[in-house]
Amino acid sequence: MADNQLHASEDETELLSFRVGTQEYCVEIMLVREIRGWTRATPLPHSPPHVKGVINLRGIVLPVIDLSARLGMDPIEGVDRNVIVVVSVGEITAGLLVDAVSDILTVSEKDMQPAPEIAAGRSGRYIRALIVTDEKLIRVLDLKTILPGENQDAA
């Protein structure tokens, strides 16, 4: 990755993209605190299927969400090549379990297209925008709806 790409100009945003199943997703890089390898999570009793459990992040009890299950796809089994993306939105910090991290993208606002109505299916509400690059379609996640919190759905 070239240096000049790391310095986003004013209307540009940096995004971290990762693979979940066969699809590409991304989140604003400013919300990402760190990326770490998969460690076995301690399951929480009576939790929804997408809550993988909790892991020890340097002494903090960090809940891990299986992004695939959260988006209505098959749950990720959790193997060594899987990755936990630790994100923070407001007061809430959680880990997103993804298949693999792909890239860091620098895009301007105009490159982000609003998600079409047709995408508003089961997982459509978690998608904030779409980016088309190199004939790939990358979905920008709306973390507020993904993370548990005030607007948690009855999953």
Binding site: T42, L44, H46, V54, I60, V61, P63, E91, P148, G149
Partner: peptide, 23 residues
């Protein structure tokens, strides 16, 4: 933490010697 909410039967968590979290 608040992220997990109240889980029936679980008071808190701890970290054991192997780094794993135990409820």
């Amino acid at each position: 933490g608040q992220t997990c909410g109240h889980i029936p039967g679980v008071a808190a968590a701890t970290i054991l010697g192997d780094g794993q979290i135990a409820l």
